[in-house]
Each structure stands twice: as structure tokens, then as C-alpha cells.
Design a protein around this nucleic acid. Sequence first.
DNA 1: TGAATTCTGAACTGAATAGTCCAGTTCCGG
DNA 2: CCGGAACTGGACTATTCAGTTCAGAATTCA
Lengths: 202, 202
Amino acid sequence: MRVMSSKPKTERGRASRERIVERAAELVAEHGVQGTSLDDVLVAAGASKSQLYHYFADRDDLVEAVVANRCEQAIVELTQLLKSVSRLPELEQMLAGYVASYEQSPTGCPIGTLASEVADRNEGARLQTVVGFAAWERLFVDVFERMRESGELRAEASSESLATALLASLQGGILLSQTRRDSHSLHVAVEAAVAHIRSFAS
Amino acid sequence: MRVMSSKPKTERGRASRERIVERAAELVAEHGVQGTSLDDVLVAAGASKSQLYHYFADRDDLVEAVVANRCEQAIVELTQLLKSVSRLPELEQMLAGYVASYEQSPTGCPIGTLASEVADRNEGARLQTVVGFAAWERLFVDVFERMRESGELRAEASSESLATALLASLQGGILLSQTRRDSHSLHVAVEAAVAHIRSFAS
DNA sequence: TGAATTCTGAACTGAATAGTCCAGTTCCGG
DNA sequence: CCGGAACTGGACTATTCAGTTCAGAATTCA
């Protein structure tokens, strides 16, 4: 059974906890979950062991909080990018921007990279990535719904399936590009995904 | 500079080395690279530390050999599955079989899972996964070339791009299905990829 | 056969790391 | 202002793991 971890009751405590999570999230973004030790986190956050174990049951508990933090962050950004997209050209432009930003700093997908690292090693963290993917997919679904309402997408197209397929192409493209250290694969994967969507255009 | 690691000169040595790599590959398949310690490998292979360091410079060197082994194995199997595929329905059937086998034992893609784990932590191993992906993609390219020769695929379709896109969809679908523990995402991703290919059929 | 080479076993070292403990400090309601 | 609860510091433990060492066994080949 997991030992209790107190939630902070005061403002000061909440700030401490948050600072730990945020610094940890930065380190994880840079070095991955496995590549980040608790001691690294502690010096980065200017905190001490007992502080950490005051707020988190164990390492996995911290990792879960970090993953949740990064997913939330990613979804906030993606929401900004996608909330006003309601036409195919806008979607294309947004995706092109995503590819371009990847080219500029190829730091993988925050959610995808975490997911593969965490999936069968930390159930709580895995569930956070599931939520993150679901939110992302949902943003795509909403885009397709708006496209359908504006008559740009044929009725028979399943927004859910299109969203899943687009997300998969992105994730796979990122994986290939990250492995190959060359954004070309991501570019091609996105192009194909867009072409597939366009095939359902009115 | 990396310390020398002897290649085996005798049959016995070759067998020892191979046994270590194979057992290590099994453990890595089950627990991932990070989740497999040298000691685990040694007891599984019935070998000793000095044996290991006789054949491998260090842990990374062993990991590289393991990754190469698993990629090679995967490519052998994929070659068997794909070498005689020259029609779209055959490709669809093969992919459906892949999805079905994933449903039966959802052990991710051997290459993709390794790639994301190793990409920015072990340059030699990363290069092995690059080679593995290239071989896989090449198999798809050959399929598309055969389809094109038989007039089933229009000339303007780029076999390379189709292959990259298909591979990305597969990898992304596997990633999603693995984190969600539900083969549905992979299924949808493959369906979309096939539809995209079919849009280039004559 | 016997010397040189290749290969093997097992104990050891040192560093990193997750997790514990407890005494001391700060904060808050009454 | 005081008693208890929330919070903090940092030293300490136990373990795991990569890598070393070296004596000696097996193998090769002249």
C-alpha cells in the first residue's frame, strides 16, 4: 500500500509543491523521465528530500504530477492553436506551422514522448497521457465538426476516425523524424494525413 | 575513447557472445532497455561479468548489439510477410493480420519502441533503428513498385512518400494503442493509411 | 605436447539513487 | 501569546548497478 502524501494546506506549501513540479517538468522535458533523478530535481527546485516526500508518496507519484503538468501545458497551447480553426486551409496552415516549429527545435511531442516512456512503467502517469491524447484528439474532432457544419466536409466522414488518424500520423511522423534526425518523415506523414482529410471534402 | 572489446575468434566464443545478445534481446523485449540491467542479462544467459566485458566495451555497446539483433529479426519477419505482396488487397490483408496479431499480444513494434527509448541516449543504437526503419520502409516501397508495375497504382504516386506515410501511421497507431491499451486507434490509423493509398489506385 | 592465446568465474569497488528519520522552524487559530 | 499542526533541512541508510581485476581454465596451433 502506498504511503500517504500530504496535500499542501497553506499558500507557502502550495508554492513549494508547484515549484518542485515545474522544475521537474523542465528537467523531464530535457532529459526524459528515466534521465531525471530526484536529486537533480531537488537542486533545480532548491528543495530538500523531505519536502519532496512531504508532497509526493514516491518517485512515481512525482512523475505522475509532472506528466499531468506537461500534458496540461501542451493542451493549453494546442487549444490556442486549434480553437479558431474551422476551415481546411487553416488546419493545413496550423499543421505546417507545427512541422516548421519542429524543424526549428526538434524536441519531439511532449505527450507522445512521455507516453512511450511511461506507458508500461507507471500506471498513473500512463492515465495522464491517455487524458492528454484524448483532449488533443477532441480538439481535432471539434475542428472537423466545424468543418462539417460549414459544409466543407461530407457528412459521411467520421470526425472521430479522422482525428485519430491525424493524431497517429503526427505521432508516427514525429517518432520517425526524431529517430532519423530529419524532419522529412514528419513532413510527408502530415502531407498524407491532410490529403486523406481532403478526400472527404465536399 | 572507448575501450577495446574483442570479437570472438573461436566457435565457442561466438556462441557465448550470441547467447548473451539473444537473452538480452528477450529481456529487453519484455522490460525495455532501461528496465534491463546487466546482472539480469548475465543470470539469464548463464554468463559472468567478465565474459560480457570481454565481448562488449560497455553497456551501450551491448544495447547496440541487442537493438541490431531485434531489428534484424523484425526485418526478417516483415520480409517474409511482404516479399510476395504485389496487390492492394494483399497489402490490406497483411496489415489486417498485423493489427490482429497486435490485438492478440500487444507488445508494441519492436523497432519503434526501441527507437523512442534509445534515440537520444545511445547514438550507435539509434543508428541501428534508423537502418531498421529504412529496411522496413524499403519493403513497403518495393510493394508499391510492384503495384505500380502491375498498373494498379497510378504513376504519379511516389512510392517513397506512400511508404513513409504508411510507416508513420503504423508507428503512431501503435503508440496510441499502446498507451490506451486498446487496439482501436491502431485499427483506425491503418484504415486511414490504406484509404490514402487506395486514392492513388488506377 | 606445450606455450601462447582466448575465454571464463567470481569477488570486489565506487558511484548513483530511492527512500527514511528526526530535530527544528514557521505558521495559524483560539 | 501559546500549543499544535504544517512545513523544512539535511544527514543517513540500503540497494542497485556499471564497470574492474585477476587468477586460472579451455582452446588453438606450432
